[in-house]
């Protein structure tokens, strides 16, 4: 009967013990994510189509602002004369929205599930991670639309052609790097928000700024050279670039900055998880 015998003691469980526990509760992670999505779209007419609307709306706004209002040269924005700006922006906005929504969800996740945190025991990592999973499912839907858009623009008579390249096979690796970074930051900030609610409020403002210091709606080369170094210190810049390299440019995403982003992701998930586990037992009494 005892499929999982655990010997619970005062000591913090070791990392392998914890991983076994997380594996045991992986279904819960999916179910919490699924619940989020069910509940999110349950009373809406468009349903899961809402996953696509926010990035599409942002794309339309930036296309309008840069194309019609201030009329920035396309070459300068995208680094490619023929590449439609809408596709460029959408290819950045889809992974960015995943990042922003996933983290926003993760940060509030512990506080939002207060009854579960205070009444039932299971690894608390499940909450921020499931928020990321739920944003990931939106990301998958939006990605399909992105690919369809790329294919459609292929037939649009403006000189740009979509080439399905082998580099598209590298996208899952880029996703993995991004998820690791999000998991680390999400674990840390969800915990911080539990102790100080200020974190959640601050984050909502910071995430706006963060988007503009990441090359989501413009290319890195559009900025002054000395600023590029600063912008590349932000690991999201190489990650967003890597998506474009794989999907649009058909180039290998592996370069110095991306290696740096990978390293930051690994450090972030390790430190985030370690710290989270260390403080976890204080959650129920401080929430």
């Amino acid at each position: 009967m005892t499929a999982f015998t655990n010997h619970l003691e005062l000591t913090v469980p070791s990392a392998p013990q914890r991983i076994r526990e997380l594996v045991r509760y992986r279904q819960l992670m999916w179910m919490l994510a699924w619940r989020d999505i069910r509940v999110r779209y349950k009373h809406s007419i468009l349903g899961a189509a809402w996953a696509v609307v926010p990035p599409a709306a942002m794309m339309a706004i930036f296309t309008f602002v840069f194309g019609e209002v201030v009329e920035v040269e396309r070459q300068r924005l995208t680094g490619n004369d023929s590449l439609p700006y809408s596709l460029f922006a959408f290819s950045g906005l889809v992974p960015w929205m995943f990042f922003a929504n996933g983290l926003t969800g993760a940060i509030g996740s512990l506080v939002a599930n207060r009854p579960l945190v205070t009444k039932i025991y299971f690894p608390r990592e499940v909450f921020p991670l499931s928020a990321i999973v739920s944003a990931f499912l939106d990301f998958v839907i939006a990605s399909f639309v992105l690919i369809i858009l790329a294919a459609l623009l292929h037939f649009y008579p403006n000189g740009w052609h979509f080439h399905a390249s082998w580099t598209m096979l590298l996208i899952p690796f880029v996703v993995l790097v991004q998820v690791a970074f999000m998991a680390g930051v999400g674990l840390l900030l969800s915990m911080a928000n539990l102790f100080y609610r200020d974190v959640g409020f601050l984050f909502r403002s910071i995430i706006q700024l963060w988007m503009f210091v990441t090359c989501v709606v413009y290319q890195l080369e559009a900025t002054a050279p000395w600023k590029r170094i600063l912008i590349q210190l932000n690991p999201m810049t190489p990650i967003i670039r890597a998506y474009r390299d794989c999907l649009i440019h058909g180039e290998s995403p592996f370069d110095g900055p991306f290696a740096y982003a990978t390293l930051v992701s690994i450090v972030s998930v390790t430190v985030g998880w370690w710290w989270f586990r260390k403080r976890e037992f204080e959650f129920a009494e401080n929430i």
Binding site: T2, T5, L8, E9, L10, Y121, F281, A284
Partner: peptide, 23 residues
């Protein structure tokens, strides 16, 4: 006992799977 809180001092050991009907 459920593992939701941790004691400041002392030791708790539980063998096996715990199900808590706390709420």
């Amino acid at each position: 006992l459920a593992g939701i809180l941790r004691p400041n001092r002392g030791k708790i050991s539980i063998d096996g799977r715990v199900s808590a009907l706390i709420e």
